[in-house]
Simulated scan of single mutants.
Amino acid sequence: MIADVQDALRELLYTEARLPRDALDIRFATPTSSWVSSLTRPTLNFFLFDLHENAALRSMEFHSMPLPGQVSRTLAPRRIDLKYLVTVFFKSQVDELGRDEWNVLWRVLGALLRQEEWDTAHVPAAVRALDLDLRGVVSNAPNQTNYSLFSSLGLPVRPHLTYALTVPLDLNVTNQSPLTLERQISLGEVTGPGGPRGLQVQGAERIVRSSWRVRLPDGTPAPEALVRANGSEVGFTDATGTVHLRLPREEVRELHVLTRDGQSLSIDPGEAFVTLPSPN
């Protein structure tokens, strides 16, 4: 994922900062003094010096996907902050002030500020597959850590940026469970003094419910369909084709479905999914 994101960042900068591909390299190296001395072309460098989870964006939700007879539930990806030290190195300067380096850094700053939330066109396929975006923030506060970084790399402090890019990390945590669900709800009634706190609770009613999903022949949900179980219990499917009936699954002997377009069918509920046959 990091390599995909860095390749995308390189293309974003060449495009958004209008940097010359044939005259300037964009690299992701550790800029030690010996590495800088080995450069033969002007180079914009992003040094990844830190990565940690963005706890503020952590989600413990599971995303559900229906499968035949069951539901696959996948834990949402974590979000990781990649922190870069951004510097520009020219082998030789036009003047002693290093204005060429400053001009490149200025263009890069403008491009990164315009792309705090990356346009979809720049987001790599590996990130789009997770249905998440990329977010980047340029730090505008002095950072003592950066000065220590230059010292540890054997470089004098030079104009630089600190860029934090938030990327998703898929943990591949998935579980599968049966699609048909049942619930048992016991209701109680307060009936006067008694018990350790002066109240007595008696059972009043027990509710058992099972859930079913009705699909059209092409596999899409069948919304607003009337479903009758055992000739008496009635319910309507929602937008996902799901209907809840006040019967336990094992007592459902027959399902009669009347679809929104007028199809009327009786179905043996042998599967958790109820798939309507194609009309003749």
Rank of each mutant, 00 (worst) to 15 (best):
D4I: 12
L13Y: 07
Y14K: 03
R18M: 07
T32S: 15
S33W: 03
S37L: 11
L39D: 03
R41H: 08
P42E: 09
P42H: 03
N45E: 04
F46E: 08
F49Y: 08
E53T: 09
E53F: 05
A56T: 10
A56D: 10
A56G: 03
E61D: 11
E61Q: 08
F62G: 10
F62M: 15
H63D: 11
S64T: 14
L67F: 10
Q70E: 12
L75W: 07
L82Q: 05
L82R: 03
Y84M: 11
L85Q: 08
L85I: 12
S92H: 13
D95G: 15
L105T: 02
R107E: 07
V108P: 06
L109Q: 09
G110K: 09
L112T: 08
W118T: 06
A121V: 04
H122A: 12
V123M: 01
A125V: 10
A126E: 14
V127G: 11
V127K: 13
A129E: 15
L130C: 15
L134A: 09
R135D: 14
V137N: 06
V137E: 05
V138K: 12
N140A: 15
N140G: 15
N143S: 14
N143V: 00
S148D: 06
L149F: 02
S151P: 00
L153P: 05
V157P: 01
A164K: 10
T166P: 07
T166A: 05
T166L: 04
V167N: 07
P168I: 01
P168D: 02
V173W: 13
N175F: 15
N175I: 13
L179F: 04
L181Q: 11
R183K: 14
S186Q: 15
G192N: 07
G195T: 10
P196Q: 08
R197K: 12
G198S: 00
V208A: 08
S211C: 04
R215P: 02
L216R: 00
E224V: 10
L226G: 03
R228V: 15
V234S: 01
D238Y: 03
G241M: 04
E251H: 13
E254S: 07
H256C: 07
V257S: 08
L265Q: 04
S266V: 02
F273W: 15
